[in-house]
C-alpha cells in the first residue's frame, strides 16, 4: 500500500536541530580542535620547507597540502587518517542514541516518516563535517597567503576545491558507515567499535590483505616474463574497494598535477608523453572521476543499506 505524504516532511527541522547539536556539542569541539591543530601544524611545517625551496614548483599552494616534514606527515595524510574518526564520532550514536534516550517514539509520533529522521540526521552530520572542512580549507589558504606571501592561482584554487569536495565525500562514506552501525547495533559503544574496526581494516590491514587475495585469484606478482599484469589489475581492483585508496588516488591526481595515471602503465602508453609536465586541471579531474563517483556512490549505497535496515526495525522506545 502506498503511503500518502512526502517522505521529506520534517527533514529541514531535523537537519536544523541535529546540525545545531553537532556544531555546539563538546564532542565536535574536541574533534575539530584535534583536526585543526594537527592539520595546521602539518601545513606550517610544509610552509617552512617550501620557503627553503621557493621557486621549485609552479604549484606552491598544492605542495602546502602534500609536503611532509619530519616528524609530521603531510596535510592530506593527516586528513585521510583523521576525517574517518571525526565522521565516526559524529554518527556512531545517531539512531541507537535515540533508542537509548527513549526519544525515538516521541519524535516519530510527530507527523514525519522515519525516512526524514534518518536523512535529516545524515545531512546534518554531512553539513557539520563540511563546515569544519571548509573552515580548515580557508585557514590553510590563509596560512599560505600569510607565510608564503603568494596568492594561489586559479588552477590551484580549482584543484583545491575539487580536493575539498573529495574530502567531504570521503567523510560522507565514513559517516554512512557510522550511521549503518548506529542502526544495526542498539548499544552506541558496540556501534563505535564496529565502525572503528572497519576503519582499522581499511587503513591498516587492507594493504596486507589485498596482495594475498590477489595472489590467490591471479597468481604471483612476478611471472616468467616480468610483472604479472593480471595480478596488478586484481590487486588494484581490491585496493579500490577501500575508500582510503580512492581518496588517496584523488589527492594524488588533484594535488600533484604531474600525475598522469593511477595504476599500472604500459610502456606503449607513455610513448610521446612529456613526463613530469603538469596536466591541465580538467584532465586531472577526468583522471579522478571514477574515484570521485566511487566515493559518492559508496556513501549512497551504505546510507541506503542503513535506510533499509532502519525501515524494518520495530520502534518501541
Amino acid at each position: 500500500m502506498r503511503r500518502r505524504g512526502s517522505p521529506f516532511t520534517g527533514v529541514g527541522v531535523v537537519l536544523a536541530k541535529e546540525a545545531a547539536d553537532y556544531l555546539s556539542g563538546a564532542r565536535m569541539w574536541v574533534l575539530e580542535a584535534l583536526v585543526f591543530l594537527t592539520a595546521i601544524a602539518a601545513a606550517y611545517a610544509a610552509i617552512l620547507s617550501i620557503r627553503a625551496n621557493i621557486g621549485e614548483s609552479p604549484f606552491l599552494f598544492l605542495r602546502l597540502l602534500t609536503m611532509a616534514q619530519d616528524p609530521l606527515p603531510s596535510f592530506i595524510a593527516l586528513l585521510g587518517f583523521l576525517i574517518p574518526l571525526v565522521a565516526i564520532a559524529i554518527g556512531f550514536d545517531a539512531i541507537n542514541g535515540e533508542f537509548s534516550r527513549r526519544t525515538l517514539s516521541r519524535v516519530l509520533a510527530q507527523p514525519i516518516y522515519r525516512d526524514a529522521l534518518l536523512l535529516g540526521k545524515f545531512l546534518a552530520g554531512l553539513l557539520a563535517l563540511t563546515i569544519g572542512l571548509f573552515s580548515l580549507w580557508l585557514l590553510t589558504i590563509g596560512l599560505g597567503l600569510l607565510f608564503l606571501g603568494l596568492a594561489p592561482n586559479t588552477e590551484e584554487m580549482v584543484r583545491m576545491l575539487g580536493f575539498l569536495v573529495a574530502t567531504i565525500a570521503y567523510g560522507g562514506v565514513w559517516l554512512a558507515v557510522a550511521f549503518l552501525f548506529s542502526v544495526v547495533f542498539r548499544a552506541p559503544a558496540t556501534a563505535a567499535l564496529a565502525a572503528l574496526g572497519v576503519w582499522l581494516l581499511f587503513s591498516l590491514f587492507w594493504s596486507v590483505v589485498t596482495p594475498l587475495v590477489a595472489t590467490l585469484i591471479s597468481g604471483p606478482p612476478e611471472g616468467i616474463f616480468g610483472p604479472n599484469l593480471a595480478y596488478l589489475q586484481t590487486s588494484q581492483i581490491l585496493d579500490r574497494i577501500s575508500p582510503n585508496t580512492l581518496y588517496a588516488e584523488i589527492a594524488l591526481a588533484l594535488l600533484q598535477p604531474a600525475t598522469r595515471a593511477l595504476g599500472p602503465v604500459l610502456y606503449s602508453q607513455v610513448q610521446g608523453a612529456l613526463l613530469g609536465a603538469p596536466l591541465p586541471a580538467a584532465q586531472s579531474f577526468i583522471l579522478v572521476w571514477p574515484q570521485m563517483t566511487g566515493l559518492i556512490a559508496g556513501m549512497i549505497v551504505i546510507f541506503a543499506i542503513a535506510y533499509v535496515v532502519f525501515q524494518r526495525q520495530e520502534i518501541r522506545a
Binding site: M1, R2, R3, R4, G5, T9, D21, G25, R101, R102, T103, S105, R106, A109, Q110, P111, I112, Y113, A317
Partner: peptide, 24 residues
C-alpha cells in the same frame, strides 16, 4: 494509519511510557 500516517499523527498526541527527552 497505514496509508495516511502523517494525517493520523497530526491529530494524535502520544505519551510513551518513561518518556525520553534530549537532556542537554
Amino acid at each position: 494509519p497505514l496509508r495516511d500516517p502523517l494525517e493520523v499523527k497530526r491529530r494524535v498526541g502520544y505519551l510513551p511510557d518513561s518518556v525520553g527527552f534530549y537532556d542537554g
